[in-house]
Amino acid sequence: MATQTEKQNPAFYALIAALVVMSVGPIALMLATSFKTNVDVYDASVPAFFFSPTIKNYETVLCNFLWYEADHVDYCDPTFGRALINSLIVGLVSTGLTLTIGCMAAYALVRFKFMGRGTVSMTTLLMRMVPPAVLLVPVFGIWTFQYGLDQTYAGIILIYTAMNLPFVIWILQSFIVQVPIQLEEAARMDGANPFQVFFLVVLPIIQPGLAAAAIFTFRIAWNEFLLANALSGRSTRTVPVTIVNSITEYDINWGVIMATGMLLAIPPILFTFVASKQIITGMTAGAVKG
């Protein structure tokens, strides 16, 4: 394979630079604005990127986590801090639950030859087809009147787990198929029961798959707005819900809201830089391999 790089003409690099600026620009602008005071935002003479930065916006947003008293914060509004904790709880618990349950199901489907891979990928695709907006009415009705799970963490976690399961099962299957069956047979010979084989032999091998699935699941739970908005109560609101609530007001404090948005965007951005390869694999698997 020819892996050495070829010389390209300068226009080519100009195009690439333009593309990078276009895709990162808005994010960089948000980051820059989150370090601006509201006065600077409205002052046309202050440039978009080069100004004296301040962390006041972050202090305002995270005021109930500060170990010191920020003197510009007159009244500490704990809404966002609480939402951040809620988002973390919902994201982490639903990811853990989805992975555990999804793993077991994927293992059973592969090793005990229940349904073909075709059935699972069909379910995954059908699930991908269902917009969250379509689930809004029934989930609201059922969670409120039949399960009694409205305004609780459990309700939000349950729907996220259900939404993510088909995809997680589908992606983990492709990793489990590659685990050599001889390894499991050897463990069985040594007297391990099926659960021990699964947890002590199979799980450690498919760790890369678990990582990819975890990122996808966490991202959806972390970013989702619609169902969280319908199901959460005052004390269980997640970050996207609080953001939408705060922008319906007329005079928007752009610095503060951008700091909030930035805090919501940071985990997915970190994941992207740490595991872009797994993410791209997960994204392309559906279309390229069929």
């Binding site: 895709s23 994010i27 991202r219 970013n223 919501l264 965007a265 997915p268 951005i269």
Partner: peptide
């Protein structure tokens, strides 16, 4: 990156 961050 644009696809990963929250639509909100």
């Amino acid at each position: 990156l644009p696809m990963m961050i929250a639509p909100i």
